[in-house]
Design a binder for these strands. Structure first.
Lengths: 167, 167
DNA sequence: GTCGAATGGTTCGACGATCGAAATGCTATA
DNA sequence: TATAGCATTTCGATCGTCGAACCATTCGAC
């Protein structure tokens, strides 16, 4: 690996931050699985709840199709996913009055509580772990993470282009 | 949180970095899934290949049981996973001569190439996405990510304590 | 040494999540 | 109105995972 136009240590730093993010992803993965199992849910179900909760917080409820896109699932899998969540009383189907083909998803208190239970202890522990770092560092890290996430999304779409698939 | 009266924006910064990491985890998740599908593999199969490759690089081949532990799978699921990988010609079962109950897993070039194909374009895109940030920022981000990952692991173990695990 | 317990993997049957294709209901355009 | 197009659902099939029972091997105690 040659160093192109960068200060010495650039490649090592890139490697370090990339590896840190990868480890983080693996650990998150396991965490989600453990938490989901504890609540008798599948992993996609939990991810769905998080997306729906995030959108609900922004006051812009998700449609079924958008959810499918964010989860990388097909339409039919999304339908049965929503069936499961609705059956468990976590979300409610609401037909969009402006376009009655569309579904918007509204979260029940049950699921909101679950999302909170998911995030709260985690957020507390994170705040502790970062307590002695300056706020500026957190903002820097957030920006770096967002950019790397962008790279992940780009790679995903490139990979999807190889195998032209549903949308 | 005693930061309540602390520097303005602290809470917001915490929220921002935590959210960035969460989105990153979800996107990594989807990415693995999409990539795996493009190669006619399941997500666990791909994760398995990455673990086996990582261990092979260190010259310390994995056993079937270790693989199961790292993937969080049961024994039977691991057996059929290895069946699939072996059938596809990616790995080879080798009985450990020292303890003939044990299997060690050896990787084929096919799978090594696949692991490389997985990481290379991703690494390239990440390097591009971070090109105009100072190296120091990357190191800061790596440290922040590592600390948050520690918090995730701690939360996972706390959650596991609630529901003692069968393994 | 021999027997029982523990360990590492495998087989079998069942279930659940996802897929693809066809169907349904709705909207927009002509 | 007819028609094309879109969002979601239904249906049948497939695949990955689980749990329990099972084989082979090793270890420990007598």
């Amino acid at each position: 690996m040659r160093e192109q136009t960068g200060p010495p240590g650039r490649a090592a730093a890139l490697d370090e931050v990339a590896r840190a993010l990868q480890v983080s992803a693996v650990e998150s993965d396991v965490f989600v699985d453990v938490f989901a199992r504890a609540h008798h849910l599948g992993r996609s179900d939990l991810n769905a709840i998080m997306w729906i909760a995030a959108s609900a917080e922004q006051g812009r409820p998700l449609t079924a199709g958008e959810l499918a896109a964010r989860l990388g699932l097909g339409a039919s899998a999304t339908t049965s996913l929503i069936d499961r969540l609705e059956g468990a009383g976590h979300v409610e189907r609401i037909r969009d009055p402006r376009d009655r083909r569309r579904l918007t998803l509204s979260m029940n208190d049950t699921a909101l509580a679950m999302a909170r239970e998911f995030f709260q202890p985690l957020g507390r522990r994170m705040a502790e772990a970062l307590a002695d770092l300056p706020t500026e560092d957190l903002l820097v890290a957030a920006e770096v993470i967002r950019r790397m996430t962008g790279a992940i999304v780009a790679s995903r779409e490139a990979a999807r282009a190889d195998r032209p698939e549903p949308r």
